Amino acid sequence: TELRLDINGREIKVDGADKETLKELLKLAEKNNDEKAIRIIRHLLER
């Protein structure tokens, strides 16, 4: 399955993203107070 998050109005594919990319996405999600995106990205970073 493909995991996509809508961050800042942009749909971004997050599964398969490297750790650096995920960290950047996490910063974006935190800036937007997007709890769902934050939770998902943190979960991916823990893998």
Results as ranks from 00 to 15, higher is better:
24 E>Y: 15
46 E>F: 10
33 N>A: 10
12 I>W: 15
45 L>E: 01
33 N>F: 10
45 L>C: 03
30 E>V: 12
6 D>A: 10
6 D>V: 15
6 D>S: 14
28 L>Q: 10
12 I>P: 02
2 E>S: 09
1 T>R: 04
30 E>F: 08
32 N>W: 15
44 L>M: 09
5 L>G: 03
8 N>A: 13
7 I>L: 12
27 K>S: 07
42 R>G: 05
24 E>G: 09
16 G>V: 15
15 D>I: 07
38 I>H: 02
39 R>A: 11
44 L>F: 14
28 L>C: 03
12 I>E: 06
26 L>A: 01
21 T>K: 13
10 R>I: 15
12 I>Y: 15
14 V>H: 02
9 G>L: 04
27 K>P: 02
12 I>F: 15
9 G>Q: 03
25 L>M: 07
38 I>F: 04
29 A>Q: 00
1 T>Y: 11
33 N>T: 05
9 G>I: 03
2 E>K: 04
31 K>E: 10
42 R>V: 11
22 L>F: 02
47 R>F: 15
6 D>Q: 15
22 L>S: 00
18 D>L: 03
31 K>F: 12
44 L>D: 00
3 L>R: 02
18 D>G: 05
22 L>M: 04
37 A>G: 03
19 K>S: 08
15 D>N: 13
46 E>D: 13
35 E>M: 12
40 I>M: 07
10 R>V: 15
10 R>D: 11
35 E>Y: 12
4 R>S: 13
19 K>V: 13
27 K>H: 13
16 G>F: 13
45 L>S: 01
16 G>Y: 12
7 I>C: 07
36 K>W: 08
5 L>M: 04
27 K>W: 08
19 K>T: 14
31 K>L: 13
8 N>V: 04
21 T>Q: 14
25 L>A: 04
22 L>P: 00
4 R>L: 15
7 I>H: 05
21 T>V: 08
34 D>C: 05
40 I>W: 05
24 E>C: 07
41 I>W: 00
4 R>P: 05
7 I>A: 03
27 K>Y: 12
34 D>S: 05
38 I>W: 04
41 I>S: 00
25 L>D: 00
35 E>F: 11
13 K>D: 12
28 L>H: 08
37 A>W: 04
4 R>W: 15
3 L>Q: 05
45 L>K: 00
27 K>Q: 11
16 G>W: 13
32 N>R: 05
42 R>S: 09
39 R>W: 12
25 L>T: 01
47 R>K: 14
35 E>A: 11
4 R>V: 15
9 G>F: 04
37 A>E: 01
9 G>R: 01
10 R>Y: 14
46 E>T: 08
31 K>Y: 10
30 E>H: 08
43 H>D: 14
25 L>N: 01
17 A>R: 11
47 R>N: 14
42 R>Y: 07
39 R>H: 10
37 A>H: 02
8 N>C: 09
34 D>H: 03
44 L>N: 03
40 I>R: 03
22 L>A: 00
33 N>S: 09
15 D>C: 06
20 E>V: 10
37 A>D: 01
5 L>W: 03
12 I>R: 01
33 N>L: 08
1 T>L: 08
23 K>V: 06
25 L>H: 02
9 G>N: 05
13 K>L: 15
20 E>T: 08
30 E>P: 00
12 I>G: 02
5 L>P: 02
14 V>C: 03
18 D>H: 04
3 L>C: 04
43 H>I: 14
18 D>R: 03
37 A>V: 06
3 L>Y: 10
46 E>V: 05
29 A>S: 03
25 L>S: 01
28 L>W: 13
1 T>W: 14
39 R>I: 10
5 L>E: 04
7 I>E: 03
32 N>F: 15
22 L>R: 00
23 K>N: 08
17 A>Y: 07
10 R>H: 14
12 I>D: 02
10 R>F: 14
23 K>P: 01
16 G>E: 13
15 D>V: 06
17 A>Q: 10
47 R>Y: 15
41 I>K: 00
16 G>C: 07
8 N>D: 11
27 K>D: 08
9 G>C: 05
20 E>W: 07
39 R>N: 12
25 L>I: 06
6 D>C: 10
28 L>K: 03
8 N>E: 06
2 E>Q: 08
4 R>A: 11
12 I>S: 02
9 G>T: 01
23 K>R: 10
11 E>P: 08
43 H>C: 07
21 T>C: 06
1 T>F: 12
18 D>I: 03
28 L>N: 04
29 A>P: 00
26 L>D: 00
38 I>C: 14
19 K>F: 06
32 N>Q: 12
6 D>N: 15
11 E>V: 12
29 A>D: 00
45 L>H: 01
45 L>Y: 02
41 I>P: 00
2 E>R: 03
1 T>I: 07
6 D>T: 15
34 D>F: 03
47 R>E: 15
13 K>Y: 15
24 E>F: 11
40 I>F: 08
44 L>E: 07
41 I>M: 02
8 N>F: 06
43 H>E: 14
6 D>Y: 15
14 V>K: 01
38 I>L: 06
20 E>S: 07
26 L>I: 03
33 N>C: 09
9 G>S: 01
34 D>K: 01
44 L>V: 06
8 N>P: 02
31 K>C: 05
13 K>T: 13
41 I>H: 00
44 L>S: 02
12 I>T: 05
32 N>C: 06
39 R>D: 10
19 K>E: 13
19 K>N: 09
44 L>G: 01
17 A>W: 09
34 D>E: 06
43 H>F: 13
6 D>W: 15
24 E>H: 11
38 I>E: 04
36 K>T: 10
27 K>A: 11
14 V>G: 02
31 K>D: 13
43 H>M: 14
8 N>Q: 05
13 K>R: 11
20 E>M: 05
24 E>Q: 12
26 L>Y: 05
28 L>E: 10
23 K>C: 06
29 A>V: 05
26 L>E: 01
3 L>S: 03
17 A>I: 07
44 L>C: 04
29 A>C: 05
1 T>C: 13
33 N>E: 09
31 K>P: 01
23 K>W: 06
32 N>Y: 15
11 E>H: 08
6 D>R: 12
28 L>M: 11
1 T>E: 12
39 R>G: 08
31 K>H: 10
23 K>Y: 11
14 V>Q: 01
33 N>M: 09
11 E>T: 09
2 E>T: 05
3 L>M: 07
23 K>I: 08
46 E>R: 06
34 D>V: 03
23 K>M: 07
16 G>T: 15
2 E>M: 11
43 H>T: 11
39 R>Q: 13
30 E>M: 13
31 K>T: 08
32 N>P: 01
7 I>Y: 07
19 K>G: 06
38 I>D: 01
